[in-house]
Computed example of a mutant assay.
Amino acid sequence: MTTKPANRRIRVFINCPFDAEFAPIQDAINFAVITCGFKVNSAATIEDSGQLRLAKIIDLIADSSLSIHDLSRVELDPRSNLPRFNMPLELGIALGMKYLGRRKLRDHQLLVLDSKPYRYQQSMSDIAGVDPKSHGKNPAQAIVEVRNFLAAHSAERLPGPDAISSLYTLFNAVLPSDLAPHRQKSHELTPAERLRLMESFVAGAAA
């Protein structure tokens, strides 16, 4: 069995909607990944105008041994009356890498999430064998699904879902006071800043 490079082994690519409605789920997913000892890989945290977005995403997936794909946004956009294809596209890239890519990348493992159980059967039935999980638009349930997925790929004993949820609640409770000296509001944080604050908080809680 080939040993994965340590830095790639702990990286998790996150493929999810970037909008205000989904933000609580995205935040919970990121927090669960960090609390379980893994590192978030996300296109939203990289500021490089010189790199094509698709090339950036391909690099991030290849640099991660695990990925989480949320398909909650397959419904029609009320403004354009078109579905959003970004998440299914990125899932397709990850599946292609796993089954058709270079041999060293075929160890890639995926978690597929959706807002409702079995909804994928109507929109993307070909992924039935991937066994998608549902979070029901509930951050606590998203933490459960992410934690259980990561537990299958970690050599460490991970905290339980309730412990992660309690720590996540505490993080959100203390965040405003932590930001106050910097005259900054939570909604003003960039994705990269928020992840760094999560990492610092989790490290402090474990100390």
Rank of each mutant, 00 (worst) to 15 (best):
M1F: 13
T2D: 07
T3I: 15
I14F: 06
C16T: 10
P17T: 08
D19W: 11
F22W: 15
I25H: 01
D27F: 08
I29A: 09
N30L: 01
T35L: 07
C36E: 00
G37Q: 00
F38L: 03
N41G: 05
A43C: 00
A43R: 02
A43D: 02
T45M: 08
E47S: 01
S49F: 04
G50C: 01
I58K: 00
I61M: 08
A62T: 02
D63S: 07
L66P: 06
S67D: 11
I68V: 11
H69D: 09
S72I: 02
V74F: 12
E75Y: 10
E75P: 03
E75A: 14
D77F: 05
L82M: 14
P83V: 14
F85Y: 15
L91N: 04
G96V: 05
D107F: 06
H108K: 08
V112N: 02
L113F: 06
D114M: 05
K116T: 09
K116D: 06
P117T: 12
Y118S: 03
S123L: 03
S125V: 08
D126K: 02
I127H: 06
G129A: 09
K133N: 06
S134M: 09
S134H: 03
G136R: 09
N138T: 04
P139K: 04
A142W: 08
V144W: 04
E145Y: 03
A152E: 13
H153P: 00
E156G: 08
E156K: 13
P159S: 14
P161T: 11
P161E: 12
D162H: 12
D162C: 09
D162Y: 10
D162E: 15
I164V: 12
S166F: 07
Y168L: 08
A173Q: 13
P176R: 05
P176T: 08
P181I: 11
H182N: 02
R183V: 11
Q184L: 08
L189D: 03
E193P: 06
R194K: 10
R194G: 00
R196D: 06
L197T: 03
M198A: 09
E199M: 13
S200A: 11
F201Y: 12
F201T: 07
V202L: 09
V202K: 02
V202I: 13
